[in-house]
Amino acid sequence: MADPSSRSPQLRLVGSGCEAAPEASRATIPDTEWAILMAHAQDGDRAAYQRLLREITPYLRSLAARRHRDPGDIEDAVQDVLLTVHAIRHTFDPTRPFGPWLVTIAKRRFIDRLRSQGRRRRRELPLAAEHEAVAALQVRFDEGSDRRELKKAIDELPPMQRQAVHLLRLREMSLKEASQASGMSIASLKVNVHRAVKNLRRMLGDRSET
C-alpha cells in the first residue's frame, strides 16, 4: 500500500533540528518563530496567522512533492494540510516545538490521501488501448443499427419502388437485367428507383432529425 517512500525516515529532519538535514532549505526551519506565530494566531492575531501559513506552504509543498508526482496533487495535498492545521490549531501547545506537530499532521494527511487514491485506482481503470478498441466496436454497432434502419425504410416503400431499389441498388443489377427479372420497363425502373431514393432520403432524414 501507499508508495515505498512513505517508509523512509525523511520526516525526522524537522523534529531533530538542523543536524540531520541534508538539504540547506530544510536546515533553516524556523521552529521557534513558527511556534510563536502560531501562539499569536491562537490568540486571534490574523496577520501572524497569515504569515505563518504563507511561510509553511513552501515547506509543505516540498514534503508533498516526495509523495505525489502530479503538481495538481501536490497543491491539493498542501491545501488539505492547511485546512487541517486550521481546523485543529487549538491542539498546538506553544511550549512544545512546532515542527513535529506540523509534520505529523502533514504526514497523516498525505497518507490518507494516498490511501484514498489507491482505493480510487482499484475502482477506476485508466483509459487504455483496450478501451479504444471497445469504442471502435461501438462505432461498428452504430453502423449496424444504421443498416437495420435503412432496411426498415426500404421495406416501407411502395412495392414497385422497393423492387427497383432491391434489384438495382442492393443486388446491383444492370437496368436490362433488372427489367428482365422484374418484367418492369427500363423507364419504369428508372422512375421508381429515383422516387425510392427520394423517399428514403426523406424518411431517414426525418428520423435523424427527431
Binding site: 497569515q50 501559513l53 491545501q79 492547511l82 486550521h86 491542539t91
Partner: peptide, 16 residues
C-alpha cells in the same frame, strides 16, 4: 487565496 480566506475567517481559539 485559501490562506487569505483562512486568515480572514480566523477566530481566536482556546488551547487544549
Amino acid at each position: 487565496d485559501l490562506i487569505d480566506s483562512l486568515a480572514a475567517n480566523m477566530k481566536p481559539v482556546r488551547r487544549l
